[in-house]
């Protein structure tokens, strides 16, 4: 089966620092992939490259068989124009560690903005669709609240609704529970679990090992900018092959 997302020989550096080294990864439609690794291993950067928030020097990313971010022009590799990047970004949804809701808009306003200004839907349709998504994350009754009037967990659920309302092919979750108080983590993870049952394709960067094990089809371990091990979730935690993954799993209590 043709992969939905295909990352090939992806490399990126910040100056002398090589953040990603020859990363290869395929994600099939409906698959849930968790990426784990210590901070600085390049996992967040990988997600940001897929969402075209970061530039990368070598390799390519294919979404639905189409190269995103760059194209070859007369033998030279060139970054696409802003309008093309924007169009491609709309195909991947991203949820951030720090929520990044728009503070001047209500929960409803946050979700409708993309529908109105990117998808070009009319007000009534946008509103209806946004309300459906807010209901989906259990926040129907909070639609007219501003972000600061919501708890961290509620804000993150609005952010999830904002990303999903755009109907992306692929959902990218970047440490979405790391900024939450412990008692709020579960409500967000529950939301993701219910989305997983709908067959959404997701790439999840997380430190919640138990969550990764329960929800993922496959897990990826990254270290020092490289993909060290990729394996089905069941065996990933118990029968790790590489010494580095074993070491990492030992130090992070499951």
């Amino acid at each position: 089966m043709k992969p939905l997302l295909s990352i090939r020989a992806l490399s990126k550096s910040f100056g002398e620092n090589r953040i990603l080294k020859n990363v290869n990864l395929d994600v099939t439609e409906g698959e849930i992939i968790s990426i784990i690794g210590s901070s600085g291993s390049g996992k967040t950067t990988l997600l940001r490259c897929v969402n075209l928030l970061e530039e990368f020097e070598a390799g390519e990313i294919l979404l639905d068989g189409q190269a995103i971010g760059y194209r070859m022009e007369q033998g030279k590799r060139r970054r696409m124009r802003e309008s093309e990047l924007a169009r491609q970004r709309a195909n991947t949804g991203m949820v951030f560690q720090s929520f990044n809701l728009f503070p001047h808009l209500t929960a409803l306003g946050n979700v409708t903005l993309g529908l109105l200004k990117v998808r070009g839907l009319d007000k009534a349709t946008s509103r209806t669709r946004a309300m459906e998504w807010l209901a989906r994350v259990g926040l129907e009754s909070r639609s007219h609240h501003y972000p600061h009037e919501l708890s961290g967990g509620q804000q993150q659920r609005v952010a999830i609704a904002r990303a999903l309302a755009m109907n992306p092919r692929l959902l990218l979750l970047d440490e979405i529970t790391s900024a939450l108080d412990p008692e709020l983590v579960q409500e967000v993870l529950q939301t993701i679990k219910s989305l997983a049952q709908e067959g959404r394709t997701m790439m999840i960067v997380t430190h919640e090992m138990r969550f990764a094990r329960d929800i993922s089809d496959r897990c990826v371990f990254m270290d020092g900018g490289e993909v060290i091990e990729v394996a089905p979730a069941a065996g990933f935690f118990t029968q790790s092959k590489s010494a580095r993954l074993k070491e990492f799993l030992r130090s992070s209590s499951l």
Partner: peptide, 28 residues
């Protein structure tokens, strides 16, 4: 800067981010 990224992630172009995300906040 994360506000710009949030705008980008839902597919807004920069002029639209300026108009609908940054300016309303800056105006205040």
């Amino acid at each position: 800067r994360t506000q710009i990224e949030a705008g980008r992630s839902i597919g807004l172009t920069f002029p639209k981010i300026l108009l609908y995300v940054l300016m309303p906040q800056a105006l205040l």
